[in-house]
Design a binder for these strands. Structure first.
Lengths: 131, 131
DNA sequence: CTCATCTATTTGCAATAAGCACTTATGGTT
DNA sequence: AACCATAAGTGCTTATTGCAAATAGATGAG
């Protein structure tokens, strides 16, 4: 996102794994398809690097979150179809708890920021622990 | 967080920089103090590694987000006091926009998950793009 | 027929950033 | 003297990403 001298990456989400688990929970799919859906869904900041997606999928398989099998297609090269395992489903549920916690932390942070740095917005009292 | 064979880190926030900027916007401070406040605030998942905080602060100085000066204390070792620059303030504002965007993405993701994977919760219709 | 293009997956390499352990140092307490 | 809290830092390893490129099957244009 930011190619300038400052190289901060305050957007990073680490949301790729949960989103992949989610998409595969909806329906088994192959990598290329998942990459397209990721772009459509727009849950991740910026473009998704195909290499990252494929590597994540392979790792997910190593850890038994998914299983894969080659699928010959009439058209185009063969593709590896991934299917979520029950372990993957469990991890998705855990991930979503973490996502919810994270959402709450972001909300808390936003509230703090607005109260402390933008008090003009809606005359909020300070709500920092011990002032 | 997870020391087991599965090494997924779906919590990672990359929120350290924005929170440091925020704390320093409230008031100049030194590293040790910031580490304690980070622990109190509990905006980051898990414990904050002091080394990471100190390193981030040094980097922030290199990029002119903060300036530092040594402060002799009557008691204890000297400490480096960091003060936010106007550039740091600007970056904080940008960060908070990104935090808000991220919060919205998490909300969207949670909605999708609940509609598609937990439809029993409140009989929601699918809201995925094109089914 | 050949070349380009889309589909599909993979590897190699460099850079980034974090985690953990450890070192250094001051000053107060027991 | 030993210990602890404060305070900041270094060194090393590992995880993960981003980018570029390799490979390869199938289709359509010229």
């Amino acid at each position: 996102m930011c190619k300038c001298s400052c190289s901060w990456n305050f957007t990073a989400d680490r949301l790729l794994l949960p989103v992949l688990l989610f998409l595969l929970r909806l329906k088994p799919a192959h990598g290329y398809e998942l990459i397209q859906k990721l772009a459509q869904l727009d849950l991740l900041e910026g473009e998704v690097d195909p290499a990252t997606v494929y590597r994540n999928l392979r790792r997910m398989e190593q850890e038994a979150l998914v299983v894969s099998s080659w699928e010959a297609t009439g058209t185009g090269p063969a593709r590896r179809k991934y299917t979520l395992t029950s372990r993957g489903e469990e991890l998705l549920d855990e991930c979503m708890l973490a996502v919810r916690r994270q959402k709450e932390k972001l909300e808390k942070f936003i509230r703090l920021y607005e109260n402390e740095c933008r008090p003009d917005l809606q005359g909020g009292e300070s709500c920092l622990p011990q002032g």
